[in-house]
Design a protein around this nucleic acid. Sequence first.
DNA 1: TGCCGCATGTAATTAGTTACATGATTTC
DNA 2: GAAATCATGTAACTAATTACATGCGGCA
Lengths: 194, 194
Amino acid sequence: MALDHILLGLLREPSTGYDLKKLFDGSLGHFWAAEQSQIYTTLAKLEKDKSLRSRRAPSLRGPQRRVYSLTTKGRRELRDWLRQGPEVGDQRFHYLAQVFFLDELENTDKAIDFLVRLREHFALRLEALDRVDAELVEEIPGYPDTVPPDLFFPVLTLSLGRKRIQATLDWIEESLARVRTLGEQATDAGGPPK
Amino acid sequence: MALDHILLGLLREPSTGYDLKKLFDGSLGHFWAAEQSQIYTTLAKLEKDKSLRSRRAPSLRGPQRRVYSLTTKGRRELRDWLRQGPEVGDQRFHYLAQVFFLDELENTDKAIDFLVRLREHFALRLEALDRVDAELVEEIPGYPDTVPPDLFFPVLTLSLGRKRIQATLDWIEESLARVRTLGEQATDAGGPPK
DNA sequence: TGCCGCATGTAATTAGTTACATGATTTC
DNA sequence: GAAATCATGTAACTAATTACATGCGGCA
């Protein structure tokens, strides 16, 4: 499971399940999601396997925290995962499955509607990534030409996220144009749309 | 579940579990994967829900086939799914998770190796999509300017697939250049690489 | 007083994968 | 006679989601 390995990677810096969840919602969020409950169960499993160890630590407020850190075994597993090469599992794109069947809707206006909503969604996602980028500009002098070593690869993933969303937005524009042409043809041939 | 809806969409043309699997490996393959066993269990569930019905039909060779087709209820569910707007669930990109932690490997050569392998993979994928495209050119006179209505939206999804892979390949080239620069800096500062 | 954020967890369910079972027909 | 393709299914397991339970401390 990849979540296993991601947690091992993140825990090169000791942390808690609660704080790890924030990393998912933040920096890794644009290519991986994990529920809080799944993080806790996976951490417990990894500790049982001796890939992680944990100790209790007091909290400033609220209950005691459980701080996890990597063991030698865990670090080995992390490296093995990376060395074994890219894992390119099949992706599932729900919205593309929907596009595939969009001819099922009564007329092209509904398809246009769908694509417009899709565009709104990706525009928001792009803005979110741009905000992350803006934060980096503020925090790191010389960014994007110079990046501290520990951020080098994370920044690369951010870059792909933006490129891919941009490609998707371009495709939506192009598709909207095509669907509009289709709609006009139908109107010309079959009278006014309802 | 989206697989439910995909099967409903595909079954506007009656078909069997066996043949549906081929559609996944073919046209839908670039954005959705499904195992044969999952297709069978989902079809059975959908029939129990009365969204599909099936009848037995003889086979030219091998055992009897079970041909599924949409019911009125199934068609309504398909439309509801599309009308409710884009489903943009969080995606999980295993290889990006790996890139995120690539600094764990001993030196930049290993990271370059990783990216080169990634490039090979996506180059193959792009070739596969190009072959699909080439088939369409042969089969459809006027493609890509004119597309029969039932292929219009499927062709759109194909188009996004190619754009996204192209964006990913561009990103890999750019990333390789950046990692190489990083490697040279390390060499200049810390002696020859091992 | 009641809500928000902190913090950890369990239980139930759904979705998806892997492995296995069965048997016919065609092709080499 | 062996391997590939046709064809359907079940069982066991793993991954992920949703719902629920608990309780502290600070703030309005």
